[in-house]
Design a binder for these strands. Structure first.
Length: 879
RNA sequence: GGGGCAUUGGCUCAGUUGGCUAGAGCGCUGCGUUCGCAUCGCAGAGGUCGCGGGUUCGAGUCCCGCAUGCUCCA
């Protein structure tokens, strides 16, 4: 059975049991501050369990893209070393929201595994929750009873809270779970040891494949548990493991899911993949580990980029960069590949997953480009790190830990490569010193990030929060549901949640609203509005006295909101214009808009030319002048919007019902939750102010609308007018070019004259030279002022006179300058030192200081009155 | 969000504790060598040392701020 069939059968099976099949949510977690990436099938459905949103159906099932880089048994550094850990993986899941419970969940999981997939029953074990006295939780008798219908008693194993009780967080839904484990050992091994002993014992061949969570309790803030009225089921089955179990391969990596990637690697590198593992095979190959790392990380990187998260130096983007770089490190060190490689593999992956996750194939050119650039950048970093490492001074064969850390921390050179090279050179690395520096760095960051989130004070326990800001900018009958204080760097922030609000929370690139809340006579400023798990949070300047006021008036800053709307609608018009002018490959990669400006990032591979920009700007302005009326479909089924041709974004999670914003059905139609003008005419005027690159394959356009655009143009005109006035020219550009030319010519002319003057002075001084003890001495105060010329003059004189001492005084501005040159021969013969002489003279006569080399020195000061004396005094130092 | 590092001709980089006339290689221009090209030789152009303050007699070099890039950590 192929992996495609296995996946499809899962979905078909649950569809036949009345489940609605939903597409995978994007792998990048948005809207959830506690999570960067979706790490389980359940994560995108959290709001349904918390009651913040209604699920599209009571029974749903899907395969979800997941990414795990940290966790108790899954450190990024371990991936590739064994056969069952991955960064990116698929999780199959079926859910019941207050619908079926243990009986059906258990029956169906057994049916699917044994009858559809035909896994041997005698290799399956199940676990149930054995209860916990301290928590006052009973043995999960119900699950055991259900299992007894299919599984003999001795294969139903009880486990405690750690393995078999699941909680979403410190509060909220939780409950016992029941896992299905499979014993994949050979018959011979099975004969020697009972599989029951190996369940939950970290044996690579006796593994959990399916977890069924039965949510039946709610954990309250005080830690107590209450029985939920509507009980739910949440299940998750690791797809890669399931494929391994069904296909009977020695590890996940030997299934057909990975074969095409290994085929490519074998062909490209000429190294055979042998499927060995450290710890399992005595003759294991590092090349095998490296190939698994590359193949695994490729999947993580490609799918995440396709979902809109680009490699960067911060946040989720940084995690992606780290994963990609780990892969590069492995192929660079162990597969002997010194050129970009993974970008060639991305299309293979896209083809493999074209039917399940089409978003990758749809954007493959873009993904390839980004991966290539990122690989190139890191290979450059490696090269320069190597050079730096080569030039380090190493004492007693121990590479200083701080130096190793500096290479890593400042120059991004991986510590394991440092170790590898150190070993080749016969050095050891001071690991303790490295570790200490790393811990210090972590401590610094943690300390900074420290913010204490106070508990919510709940005034009314209602979960129904409504946003009315599309239609109203003011409500006068709201009340506070809850509030809290958050300490950020010692400064308090106050958060307030209302039952109804006209305030738009930051999202979809649009800034949050500001405005005011009136608690009776008390007026509180709203500084910002943000969303957390579908909860609208008002950031206020302070908490009111009367926070329990029954009727709070909430008023959005209307003027600001209107400007934001202008920019948001203009962004839609711009998006459509870009696609018309540049082509359909233009995909939104991000946007930001507030009351001042708008920014729009999109996939495009070349610079947008000035002509194209002009065309785009013109098209948008044309649409503004057409004064198109907004068509808003506030809640229509997703399929209907798709049929209508609405633009959807990759990496965006859409619900069952969506909001569709149209400005002329033949021009712009997007799914969007933001705020818009009623007529495009309101935008007034659209002006692009900049275009540039922000990442590989991503361009950014910044533009202004309405008053801001007008002000911008007016400022440009004023500036132009003043330039024209100054130049008194019709063609300022040409006039400036001519001026620059002229200026350059004059500069050269002045320099030429100065040198001419200097050369006259030189001839004069040469004649004035005194002879003593077989060398020439020149002492003089000149009227030259350019220090460079004087320095040159001194050295030329010295050269012309053969063996000589040249001491020149000059005045630059108000300040005296002494330049002293002594021939090398005199320096070595008499031990003269120009620097020391200059310093002493400057201190004595000039109220200053000086210094330099034995043969050449300069000195200066603040008092020029005794300059001549100083120059003459040089003679006192000479033999 | 918090650290570290970097920013010097078109490109890649040197520039010791502040003081030799800001350099090197590649590239560019011209001339020569050559039937021509590559090569080689000679000559030359090209730099507000990221920006703004400060310390100093003197700052590419030290201090502060800003910008941009790289990098590590959260």
């Amino acid at each position: 059975m192929t992996s495609r069939q296995i996946r499809q059968q899962f979905l078909d099976f649950f569809a036949s049991k009345g489940h609605k099949i939903i597409p995978s949510a994007p792998i990048v977690a948005k809207n959830d501050p506690t999570l960067m990436f979706v790490n389980s099938g359940m994560a995108p459905l959290k709001d349904f369990f918390l009651g913040n949103q209604t699920p599209p159906a009571l029974r749903i099932a899907d395969t979800q893209k997941c990414l795990r880089v940290t966790g108790k048994h899954n450190d990024l550094e371990d991936v590739g070393r064994d056969g069952y850990h991955h960064t990116m993986f698929e999780m199959l899941g079926n859910w019941s929201f207050g619908d079926y419970f243990k009986r059906e969940a258990i029956a169906w999981s057994w049916e699917l595994l044994t009858e559809v997939y035909r896994l041997p029953k005698d290799r399956l074990y199940v676990t149930v929750f054995k209860g916990d006295a301290a928590e006052n939780l009973p043995f999960d008798e119900e699950a055991r009873t259900e299992w007894l219908k299919y599984v003999p008693e001795d294969r139903i194993l009880p486990f405690g809270k750690k393995e078999n009780f699941w909680e979403m967080g410190e509060q909220g839904p939780c409950g016992p779970c029941s896992e299905i484990h499979i014993d994949l050992r050979s018959d011979a091994e099975r004969a020697t040891r009972d599989g029951r002993e190996l369940v939950n014992a970290d044996d690579p061949n006796v593994i959990e494949i399916w977890n069924n969570v039965f949510m039946q309790f709610n954990r309250r803030a005080d830690g107590s548990l209450e029985e939920l009225p509507a009980k739910s089921v949440d299940t998750g089955m690791g797809f890669e493991r399931l494929c391994r179990a069904i296909q009977g391969t020695p590890s996940n990596y030997d299934t057909d899911l990975w074969r095409p990637l290994f085929d490519f690697l074998e062909k490209y590198t000429g190294i055979r993949y042998e499927g060995t593992y450290p710890g399992l095979h005595t003759d294991w190959k590092m090349t095998d580990v490296a190939m698994r790392v590359v193949a695994d990380h490729l999947r993580a990187v490609c799918f995440t980029i396709a979902d809109g998260e680009l490699p960067s130096n911060t946040g989720a983007g940084y995690v992606i960069r780290r994963i990609l770089r780990r892969a590069v490190r492995y192929y660079y060190s162990f597969l002997e590949q010194k050129e970009p490689l993974m970008y060639r593999m991305a299309p293979i992956l896209a083809e493999e997953f074209a039917d399940v996750f089409p978003e990758l194939k749809a954007q493959i050119d873009f993904v390839v480009r980004v991966v290539l650039e990122e690989e190139k950048a890191f290979l450059r970093t490696l090269e320069s790190g190597l050079r730096r490492l080569e030039s380090l001074e190493v004492h007693k064969g121990i590479l200083d830990g701080r130096q190793a850390f500096e290479l890593y921390d400042t120059f991004g050179f991986p510590i394991d490569l440092t170790r590898l090279i150190a070993r080749e050179k016969g050095w050891t690395v001071d690991e303790a010193g490295f570790e200490k520096a790393l811990q210090e760095q972590k401590e610094r960051s943690r300390k900074d990030a420290a913010k204490t989130v106070g508990d919510w004070t709940v005034l009314r326990d209602e979960s129904d929060v409504s946003f009315v800001g599309y239609d109203q900018l003011e409500v006068d009958d709201a009340y506070v549901l809850k509030y809290r204080t958050v300490q950020v760097k010692g400064k308090p922030q106050y958060h307030v949640v209302l039952n109804r609000t006209p305030f738009y929370p930051e999202g979809g690139g649009q800034v949050g609203d500001t405005g005011w809340l009136y608690f009776g006579d008390e007026k509180i400023q709203v500084l910002d509005t943000k969303k957390e798990n579908d909860l609208v949070i008002h950031y206020v300047e302070r908490l009111p006295q009367n926070i329990e006021a029954p009727a709070v008036r909430a008023q959005v800053n209307v003027h600001r909101r209107r400007l934001v709307e202008n920019n948001h609608s203009a962004t839609h018009l711009l998006h459509a214009a870009l696609r018309r002018v540049l082509g359909q490959h233009v995909q939104q990669k991000g946007s930001y808009l507030d009351d001042q400006t708008l920014r729009f990032d999109f996939a495009h591979f070349q610079k947008v030319t000035d002509e194209e920009l002009a065309q785009i700007e013109h098209l948008v302005n044309e649409k503004i002048r057409e004064n198109i009326a907004l068509e808003e479909a506030r809640s229509i089924p997703l399929e209907e919007a798709q049929k209508a041709g609405a633009m959807m974004l990759f990496g965006e999670k859409y619900g069952e019902r969506v909001r569709m914003i149209t400005f002329d059905p033949t021009y712009s139609r997007e799914l969007c939750g933001g705020c818009h003008v009623k007529q495009t005419g309101r935008i007034g005027f659209f002006k692009i102010v900049s275009e540039g690159a922000i990442a590989a394959g991503v361009r950014r356009v910044e533009a202004l609308t309405a008053d801001a655009a007008e002000r911008h143009v007016a400022a440009l005109e004023r500036e132009m007018a003043s330039i024209r006035a100054l130049l008194k020219a019709q063609e300022p550009a040409r006039a400036v070019a001519e001026l620059q030319e002229e200026n350059k010519r004059l500069h050269k002319e002045i320099e030429r004259l100065l040198w001419q003057q200097a050369s006259q002075v030189r001839q004069q001084l040469r004649q004035q030279a005194e002879q003593r003890n077989g060398f020439a001495v020149v002492t003089a105060v000149t009227t030259l002022s350019d220090t460079n010329i004087i320095k040159t003059l001194a050295s030329e004189l010295e050269r012309e006179l053969g063996t000589a001492v040249v001491a020149l005084g000059s005045i630059s501005g108000e300040k005296p300058l002494l330049t002293l040159r002594i021939s090398e021969a005199l320096v070595s013969k008499y031990g003269l030192h120009a620097g020391n002489i200059a310093r002493e003279l400057a201190q004595k006569y000039l109220k200053g200081g000086g210094g330099g080399q034995p043969v050449f020195a300069t000195a200066g000061g603040t008092d020029a009155s005794r300059l001549l004396e100083a120059v003459e005094a040089v003679k006192g130092y000479l033999p």
